[in-house]
Amino acid sequence: MDLMALLPIILMFVIFYFLLIRPQQKRQKQVREMQNDLQKGDKVITIGGFHGIIHALDEGTVVIQAGDGTKLTYDRSAIREKVAE
Rank of each mutant, 00 (worst) to 15 (best):
M4L: 10
N36A: 10
R27T: 04
Q25C: 01
K26E: 01
K43W: 13
G67D: 14
Q30W: 10
R22W: 02
L19K: 07
D75P: 04
G60N: 15
Q25T: 01
F50H: 13
F50G: 10
E59C: 03
I47K: 13
G60E: 13
L3V: 01
D75T: 10
V83H: 08
E85R: 15
I53T: 15
F18W: 05
G60V: 12
V83G: 03
L6V: 08
G60P: 02
V83R: 03
D37Q: 06
F18Y: 00
E85L: 14
I9T: 13
K26S: 00
K40Y: 06
P8L: 02
V83N: 07
M4S: 12
L20D: 09
Y17M: 03
I9R: 03
Q24L: 09
A78N: 14
K29M: 08
Q28Y: 12
G60Y: 09
Q24N: 14
P8V: 07
V62S: 01
T61M: 10
P8Q: 04
T73A: 00
D68G: 11
F18C: 07
L3Q: 11
L11S: 08
V62F: 03
E81W: 03
P23L: 02
H55V: 00
M4T: 04
A5M: 02
I45P: 00
M12T: 11
I9D: 09
L19W: 01
V63I: 13
G52K: 07
Q30P: 04
G48C: 00
Q28W: 12
R80A: 02
Q28M: 13
Q30K: 15
K40D: 04
D37K: 05
R76E: 07
K26W: 00
T70R: 05
I53Q: 13
T61V: 10
E59S: 04
V62W: 02
P23C: 05
T70V: 09
P23I: 07
Q39T: 15
Q39F: 12
G60S: 13
E85I: 12
I9Q: 10
G52D: 08
I10R: 08
Q65D: 02
V62R: 03
Y17D: 01
E85Q: 15
D75A: 15
A84E: 14
T46F: 07
I79Q: 07
I47E: 05
L57K: 02
R27W: 09
K82S: 06
I79F: 03
G60L: 12
D42H: 14
R27C: 02
Q24D: 11
F13E: 04
L6W: 03
S77R: 12
K82W: 10
